[in-house]
Design a protein around this nucleic acid. Structure first.
Lengths: 340, 340
DNA sequence: TTGTACGCGTTATCAT
DNA sequence: ATGATAACGCGTACAA
């Protein structure tokens, strides 16, 4: 009568019990490796299990245990960025690794529409996960609200400005940007500009702030070219505009490696040599940095570390520990290569 | 007494029922929008719901409904490839979109270790998903075995050679490779080589087979340089070896866009101009293709389409339809740009 | 229209 | 050592 997707009825503990001629309780005990079960019963039950092809229904177990041993990994990125940004894969792998060590299942949920937002919200409140790692939430993100109201153990990678009582892990974009700009200045450049990206995000504006503070009195707003995204294309186009406007430029801090790669291409098209005519530094130390010619000097972003650390923060809460709401910042060493 | 991660006890249907002064059955009915409930009851219950802050426990609902309305998306890639390959993100987005339209939750599970394999196997048999989309399973993959034995509705993206009674969606790597090689030959090149990648995968060996068949009698094995991965670096190094061995070469089919980008860089370092000295074509039409200088002529791989189609195949099985085990192949138009 | 009672597959608490 | 039995939170015949 039913068009249910269930193909073959799956065996339950009950089936095993009748097959082995014992009670469900005893079966449950051997499954969970508890003491106080006779060798007779154990062997009989083990035989019955493989005979009827029993596999435990974790969903039912979770219902009574009141936990799932699973942690959500929510990625909420604008379509294009998700494909473009190599960091996000690394963050995911880092989180998966940390959760895996603690025997927790990472389940990644992607939000790509309002419909997704609502469905994921239902999923989170449905008891399928014990906690969540959230990467790149936007300001005033509905998902952030849901997590708060559910008070689901959580950790954010990066911190939207409106994050109040939720822990996060990130890097100091401002200090890192300032450090690499200083380093660039030490090479003797006198007209140093920046291709600033994604100024609507805290990472974008912080990197610009660091650049500005490194230059101090020598800061010249006309040497800053804002572009919307951290992308190759944006870098290419931004650099073309900047070169047209300020031909004297001899140093560039690009807001990301992808942007830097685009900028370098634009320089080559314009007949400028890197690093002879213009010194270039980037940000991320992503795979991009080794693909440019010459290889890019950049700020190393500890992507897998960010994911792993965020996962650990969630796991700690699951153990009942109180999270540190101040947030944790990871180190970002400068990697100096040939582009400056 | 308990160190449970549960912070605040969540309200249940029962709580709503007592608050509204009705029975649980009635509450359940208004939640599921059924008929036969008085306006009085409905308003009282709706008030009670928001008062006690009730959110449905989907996990419990699934237990009784015997389905989860969730579909797994399993990615089993060698570490590096996962980060490198832009296609996988697009496939994921395509699958998510198709599932989203059908109001199903996509849950992505990544397998990055043996431990992961075992845990994911438990997860799949635990009743958390009604079906799975599997991307890039290896030959003799344990996960494939699990899926078969569970007979979980599934669809593979790409098809490992040992896939028997499981449906898949893919592209015709051989025919596509042959087509673009022919197109390259039409530009008048006489010494055309290939940087062949990942020959241990069917995609890799099929692309080589297509190249070979396009050349026919003119095929010369010494013009084929095998590299292990579909990566930029492998392309760069492979091209260097090929140039050293066969300086006369004037055309290259690279097994992927990333490989082609690496190869082009190697050509530039060696002082060869593209496309004047050497014509280059790639495969994938990924973001790489627009980053090379000049832009890459390549085979378009319908990544989002692959994901969407695979998801639809799973959804069809969930509706009780029998899957087409022959597999479905998607179109791969040639995109001609400036590199050849 | 509404309430009752049972079942989904487990684990846990009792007795025995 | 083992077997009833009560949860877990929900849907649903069936009865009222």
């Amino acid at each position: 009568m039913s068009l249910s997707p269930i193909r073959r009825k799956r065996a339950t503990i009950h089936d095993v019990a009748v097959e082995a001629g014992v009670s469900r309780g005893t079966v449950s005990r051997v499954i969970n490796g508890e003491r106080y079960v006779s060798d007779d019963a154990r062997t009989a039950i083990e035989a019955a299990i493989s005979k009827v092809g029993y596999v435990p229904n974790t969903a039912a177990r979770n219902l009574v245990m009141q936990r799932s041993e699973a942690v959500g990994f929510i990625v909420h990125e604008p379509h294009s960025l998700f494909l473009e940004d190599p960091n996000i894969g690394a963050i995911m792998l880092g989180a998966n690794d940390a959760l895996s060590r603690a025997d927790h299942q990472m389940v990644c949920l992607v939000i790509d529409s309002d419909r997704d937002t609502r469905r994921v919200a239902r999923y989170l409140s449905g008891g399928f996960v014990d906690g969540v790692v959230v990467v790149s939430a936007r300001e005033n993100d509905p998902i952030t609200r849901i997590i708060e109201s559910l008070d689901l153990p959580a950790a954010f990678v990066g911190h939207p400005p409106d994050l109040r009582r939720l822990p996060f892990v990130g890097i100091d974009n401002r200090a890192s940007a300032e450090a690499i700009t200083r380093r660039l200045l030490q090479t003797g450049r006198t007209r140093v500009g920046m291709i600033a990206a994604a100024l609507d995000r805290d990472s974008g504006s912080d990197r610009l702030a660091g650049f500005r503070s490194a230059l101090g009195d020598r800061f010249d707003p006309s040497l800053v070219e804002p572009v919307p995204f951290y992308s190759f294309k944006a870098g290419f186009e931004g650099m073309q505009r900047l070169l047209a406007r300020e031909p004297e430029i001899d140093g560039i801090f690009a807001a990301s490696d992808a942007v830097a790669a685009g900028a370098i291409d634009a320089m080559k098209v314009a007949g400028r040599s890197v690093p002879r005519d213009i010194g270039v530094v980037g940000f991320d130390d992503s795979a991009w940095a080794e693909r440019t010619q010459p290889a890019l000097s950049t700020v190393h972003q500890p992507a897998t570390g960010l994911g792993a650390r965020a996962a650990e923060i969630v796991l700690a809460q699951l153990r009942g520990e109180e999270p540190d709401l101040a947030g944790v910042l990871l180190e970002t060493p400068i990697v100096w290569r040939g582009s400056a």
